[in-house]
């Protein structure tokens, strides 16, 4: 690969155009208005131009989110693309903010934009929540009833992030998340 000369005049196109969103809680505004589009990109170079100029997730304020979704999909359950789906949820301990958070978030982004999953057409996007009680990363898929696709994505995710076999991650259907009243989660799938 080192012998191949790079043509820097041509950018590398991505399979999909992606939009990065930022959420900050302003109680004077609706939740939807607090979700703001930052930028969209459809080449590798434009992705790095954006990523290299924004704060890493670990530097964000408590209560904020980054979301990366295919263009046209809003980072919310109510969007038509998301409403029948769910998310693989990675819950981090507080100490992991310094060790693992940025690495996990970047690796997930690279899986998304590089179409690493066999069932990448089922991928909607990913969200990282920065929270005092522990950060979370969710990988959102379109259809919770497509068990084989959901499981393939979950297994590859665990593999790419080098999550130890003894650690289980769960997939939560958005509808269940919406309906839940307590803090316990109902996982429809596990890896």
């Amino acid at each position: 690969n080192e012998n191949i000369s790079m043509d820097y005049s041509i950018k590398h196109p991505l399979q999909n155009c992606w939009t990065l969103w930022y959420y900050e809680n302003d109680r004077n505004q609706s939740w939807e208005k607090n979700q703001r589009e930052i930028a969209s990109f459809e080449t590798i170079e434009d992705f790095w131009s954006l990523y290299n100029h924004i704060k890493p997730a670990s530097d964000l304020k408590q209560g904020t989110d980054y979301s990366l979704f295919k263009k046209g999909i809003r980072p919310m359950w109510e969007d038509d693309a998301n409403k029948r789906g769910g998310r693989w949820l990675i819950s981090l301990e507080k100490k992991q903010r310094n060790n693992d958070l940025d690495r996990y978030w970047l690796d997930i982004i690279l899986c998304l934009i590089g179409e690493a999953f066999d069932n990448s057409e089922d991928i909607c996007g990913a969200v990282v929540n920065i929270r005092y009680k522990g950060d979370k990363i969710g990988v959102w898929t379109a259809d919770a009833t497509k068990g084989a696709a959901v499981m393939e994505i979950g297994k590859k995710l665990k593999d790419r992030l080098h999550i130890p076999p003894r650690v289980t991650i769960g997939y939560e259907i958005h509808k269940d998340t919406m309906d839940k009243t307590g803090s316990s989660s109902r996982y429809s799938y596990n890896v």
Binding site: P13, L14, I44, G114, E115, A116, R160
Partner: peptide, 18 residues
Amino acid sequence: GTKIVYERNFLLNLRNSP
């Protein structure tokens, strides 16, 4: 159909591309 797939290292190697 076909899709454009990029490996992790390939993406990382372009991080500092001009």
